[in-house]
């Protein structure tokens, strides 16, 4: 095997120079960039985690306030129902009492009108009885004519 020893040392020096150049100009910058990217990804992940937590907390808050609003609405409806029932009862009650009052008044009116009519009838009947009696006394001639007269006045009374 023919070994050219100068190659050995030339390769040593050449690789040394290449290694120095690479680490100075290529890998050094690239390593720092890769490190920065690692940091960047870590930060992004942390940020994402934080915003996820925030979103969760807000969602929870929203859920609670929604439940609160539902409960309030239910309460209001319940109250309204209660109030309306009470009012309806009051109205019906008032109407009933009003009707009773009107009916009583009407009955009273009717009673008083009837009494008035009876009173006036009585007065007329008594007057007429007096007149009849006086006529009978005037014309007490015979039974026949008396009868005739009674009938006549009775008829008058009936026709009146």
């Amino acid at each position: 095997m023919d070994i050219v020893w100068s190659n050995f040392f030339i390769q040593l020096i050449a690789f040394g120079i290449l290694f120095w150049l690479l680490s100075r100009y290529a890998f050094g910058p690239l390593f720092s960039i890769m490190e920065q990217r690692k940091q960047f990804v870590k930060e992004q992940l942390e940020g994402a985690e934080n915003s996820r937590k925030q979103a969760e907390a807000q969602y929870e808050e929203q859920k609670q306030s929604l439940a609160q609003a539902r409960k309030d609405a239910y309460d209001i409806i319940e109250q309204a129902k209660h109030t309306s029932t009470k009012q309806a009862d009051e109205i019906v009650h008032a109407a009933k009492s009003e009707a009773t009052r009107l009916k009583d008044e009407a009955v009273k009116d009717i009673e008083s009108e009837k009494n008035k009519a009876i009173a006036s009838l009585r007065a007329q009947v008594s007057g007429m009885s007096v007149m009849i009696a006086s006529k009978i006394i005037e014309k007490q001639i015979d039974d026949k004519s008396q009868e005739q007269l009674v009938d006549q006045y009775l008829n008058e009374v009936g026709s009146k």
Partner: peptide, 28 residues
Amino acid sequence: RFDLAAIFMIVITSIIVFVIAKLAVRGA
């Protein structure tokens, strides 16, 4: 004794490697 071909190829290889690496980090 120097082997010109080996020296020549060592230099070319080193240049190729360095250029590849340099291109890779350009605008990194």
